[in-house]
């Protein structure tokens, strides 16, 4: 699979850009968090395309963003559980 470039993304509509990025990010995220990969990818796609491109090339950046996303997700689920318990 050829690397995704800024020019490839620039020629596509925003929604399509995110989809292209998601297709590349998902397998990398799935390797870290198989069960939460779909949710984490969805969260990370809210980030700017330029930053996502950087994350594709930098496993460290991706890893730290994934950790951040998991923390946010777990906090979100905890809040939901607390609201349901009321």
């Amino acid at each position: 699979q050829e690397p995704l470039t800024v020019s490839m993304l620039a020629s596509a509509p925003l929604q399509e850009q995110k989809h292209m990025l998601g297709e590349r990010l998902f397998p990398l995220i799935e390797a870290i968090h198989p069960t939460l990969a779909a949710k984490i990818t969805g969260m990370l796609l809210e980030i700017d395309a330029s930053e996502l491109l950087h994350m594709l090339e930098s496993p460290e950046s991706l890893g730290s963003k994934v950790d951040e996303a998991v923390a946010v997700l777990q906090a979100h689920y905890a809040e939901e559980a607390a609201q349901k318990a009321k």
């Binding site: 929604q15 989809h19 998601g22 297709e23 998902f26 779909a38 990818t41 969805g42 997700l73 979100h76």
Partner: peptide, 26 residues
Amino acid sequence: SNGSSINWPPEFHPGVPWKGLQNIDP
């Protein structure tokens, strides 16, 4: 919106066109 955050975040699945937040809040 009106409590639809229960489905947040939207899920990305390979091969499925990405619609972002529209996936969960049509």
